[in-house]
Simulated scan of single mutants.
Amino acid sequence: MGEAVLWGSVAASPLIVGALLALWRPWPPRWLGIVLGFGAGALMASIAFELWEEGLELGGPLPLAIGVAAGAVCYYIGDRIVEKRATSSAGQGAPLAVGALLDGVPEQLVLGIGLASGEGVSVALVIAILVSNLPESIGSASDLLEGGMRRSRVIGLWAIVAVACALATIAGFALADAVGPEFRAAASGFAAGALLVMLVDSMVPEAQSKAKDETGLATVLGFALAAGLSMVS
């Protein structure tokens, strides 16, 4: 259990670090767009080379497809609820936080199950998580601050997301003996589905609006780095 607490905290820590970086200094819109584009590319690689491939290997296409559909629908509904309650000036900050939660919880649940099953955690995988989570939290926290949210509320929001993700690793470790590979495949699919909708609806449009022509290059660089790290791991 101690191993699950350690790796759950390590995997969730970039979410807090990104929010703190946004609080530390204002990010120029162009640089913020580049960061978001880079993060979007990293998340695309995570979907293709980790969540999708692992889901297929574990449980086959049916549990994976069910998970993808469920994740996509949950994010869509959650995003609509957030849009109704958030102010229009908050930009894409709140949707990005919802995406981080719906991605991080099932992803770290699978991590915890893997740890309980005796699977190791590579340094490359930890770096890949850092590469994808850090830009997401920087972009969201910056937008929320720009929209007028108090600094204490911004850090509190991302602390809740990080704690929920870390606790998911512990829950996965505890539930490892009670779930099968099909559940792990569905959980990977859920994270992939939520991420795909978030990327198309929120993260990529926000990056494009801020960085313009540099968004595509930043996205490709993020994809290449995260894909390379996934292959090493």
Rank of each mutant, 00 (worst) to 15 (best):
Gly67Ala: 10
Val73Phe: 11
Ala65Pro: 05
Arg80Ser: 07
Leu51Ile: 07
Gly120Ala: 15
Ile81Val: 10
Glu54Leu: 14
Ala116Glu: 13
Ala162Met: 00
Ser117Ile: 10
Gly112Glu: 08
Ala48Val: 12
Glu57Gly: 15
Phe38Thr: 14
Ala97Ile: 03
Met44Cys: 15
Ala128Leu: 10
Ala97Lys: 03
Ala124Met: 12
Leu111Met: 05
Ser88Gln: 05
Ser137Ala: 03
Met44Asp: 13
Leu102Ser: 09
Leu51Asp: 03
Ser142Arg: 09
Val105Gly: 07
Lys84Trp: 02
Ala45Tyr: 09
Gly139Phe: 08
Ala45Thr: 08
Glu119Asn: 15
Leu56Trp: 10
Gly93Glu: 06
Val73Gly: 11
Glu119His: 15
Ser46Met: 14
Leu36Thr: 05
Val68Pro: 10
Val68Glu: 12
Ala100Ile: 05
Glu83Met: 04
Gly148Ser: 01
Ser117Phe: 14
Ile155Pro: 01
Leu96Ser: 12
Val126Trp: 09
Thr87Glu: 12
Ser137Lys: 02
Gly55Gln: 12
Gly37Arg: 08
Leu96Lys: 08
Met44Gln: 15
Asp143His: 08
Gly99Cys: 04
Leu157Phe: 01
Leu111Ile: 07
Ala159Val: 00
Gly148Ile: 02
Val154Gly: 01
Leu64Cys: 09
Ala42Pro: 14
Leu145Met: 07
Gly41Ile: 04
Gly67Met: 10
Ala141Gly: 02
Gly120Lys: 15
Arg80Asp: 07
Leu102Phe: 07
Glu146Lys: 08
Ile127Met: 12
Val110Tyr: 04
Gly78Trp: 04
Ile155Gly: 01
Glu136Ile: 11
Ser89Glu: 06
Val131Cys: 05
Trp52Met: 14
Pro61Ile: 11
Leu62Cys: 13
Gly112Asp: 08
Pro63Met: 09
Gly37Pro: 06
Ile47Ala: 12
Gly114Trp: 11
Ala90Gly: 07
Val163Asn: 00
Glu57Ile: 10
Arg150Phe: 01
Ile34Trp: 04
Glu136Leu: 12
Leu144Tyr: 01
Ala128Phe: 06
Gly112Val: 05
Ser122Arg: 10
Val131Ser: 07
Gly78Glu: 06
Ser117Asp: 15
Gly120Glu: 15
Gly147Ser: 02
Gly148Ala: 02
Ala40Ser: 14
Tyr75Gln: 08
Ala100Phe: 03
Ala69Thr: 14
Leu51Gln: 04
Ser89Val: 04
Gly114Leu: 14
Glu83Phe: 03
